[in-house]
């Protein structure tokens, strides 16, 4: 970790694991400046005028894609959206060939969502265009990690020393990994919570604590970040049912009553009301879930600006 004065030298944003604390802080500071733009009646700046951004989503997403699209528009970039079903990947074209075709169309920025871990790094190493990772398999979702940390910093004024609990399917979660890397680098005290099958002890290697009882964190944590829990075909051997998950790890009203008054309840969405979070709690005073969405826009403007707009603010 270094605290040297930040300079942004990267064309891509692939993983928060690869950034140092100063780079993360620069991203957050830049996002703060852009948040002001969103509050003006004229929400547009010319920073990326003439540049073309391709939203290349090989896995479905509405929230993240829309957020990147709006962020690019506010920076005056031209935007093209390509969804998996429409792409030629289904015709047997490789990821590399598809991306090189996009580049041949003179795309300046490629925002990639892909089901394979490492897909964004794969492209970044092969293309001159900026590659922004919008989620790669179970690896990272750096802009989600940044917007979560941005939201915490805005509310508490700091990250160092904050107690942050992340609850849910950590093993398969790219959101959890990006949160953990950013929070640990900025000095937060992170605890991962969930069943032993989804939150194995081996995660402690990332510099965090692991617990399998949500009661351990409720009364002391400053932030509780609930991940969407899914019970798909490939998860059946990891836990028996959503009902049992809710009973053991859901943020019910009774559990929420034990949170500190200042505790933030976060969720990357889309939420399963009544599963990982009680419906009223999701809309209640602790919740900053919609603020996260708003902040996501500012964070993505900052990422696009720094990677493709020619340097720091």
């Amino acid at each position: 970790m270094t605290n040297a004065p930040a300079a942004w030298t990267r064309k891509d944003l692939i993983a928060l694991d690869a950034l140092n604390a100063a780079e993360i802080t620069l991203l957050l500071d830049t996002a703060k400046a852009f948040k002001g733009v969103g509050e003006r009646s004229l929400k547009k700046v010319p920073a990326l005028r003439g540049k073309t951004l391709v939203n290349f989503f090989v896995e479905p997403s509405t929230r993240t894609r829309t957020s990147f699209e709006l962020a690019a528009m506010r920076l005056s970039a031209d935007v093209v959206n390509i969804a998996a079903t429409a792409s030629s990947l289904q015709k047997g074209e490789t990821l590399k060939d598809t991306a090189r075709n996009l580049e041949a169309l003179l795309a300046d920025i490629i925002v990639l969502r892909h089901s394979s871990a490492g897909a964004a790094q794969f492209l970044a190493e092969r293309l001159g265009a900026s590659v922004i990772n919008a989620g790669d398999g179970s690896h990272e979702h750096p802009t989600q990690g940044l917007l979560d940390v941005f939201t915490m910093r805005e509310r508490f004024g700091r990250i160092a020393g904050l107690k942050v609990a992340i609850v849910g399917d950590i093993l398969f979660s790219r959101v959890a990994r990006s949160n953990v890397h950013a929070l640990v680098k900025l000095g937060a005290d992170v605890t991962l919570v969930g069943p032993t099958t989804l939150v194995p002890r081996s995660l402690e290697a990332l510099g965090v604590r692991v617990t399998h009882r949500i009661d351990d964190v409720l009364e002391t944590t400053d932030v509780i970040n609930l991940l969407r829990i899914q019970h798909e075909r490939q998860r059946k051997e990891y836990f028996p049912s959503l009902g049992e998950y809710t009973a053991l790890f859901g943020l019910t009203k009774a559990r929420a009553a034990r949170l500190q008054p200042t505790c933030l309840v976060m969720h990357p969405g889309p939420i399963n009301r009544g599963v990982e979070i009680d419906s009223d709690i999701a809309d209640g005073p602790h919740s900053v879930i919609l603020e996260q969405v708003t902040n996501g826009l500012a964070v993505r403007m900052a990422v696009l600006y720094l990677c493709a707009g020619g340097g720091a603010a």
Binding site: A117, D136, G137, H139, R174, A205, L206
Partner: peptide, 8 residues
């Protein structure tokens, strides 16, 4: 540790 870190 590496499979955890890399999400593989």
């Amino acid at each position: 540790e590496w499979s955890v870190r890399l999400g593989l």
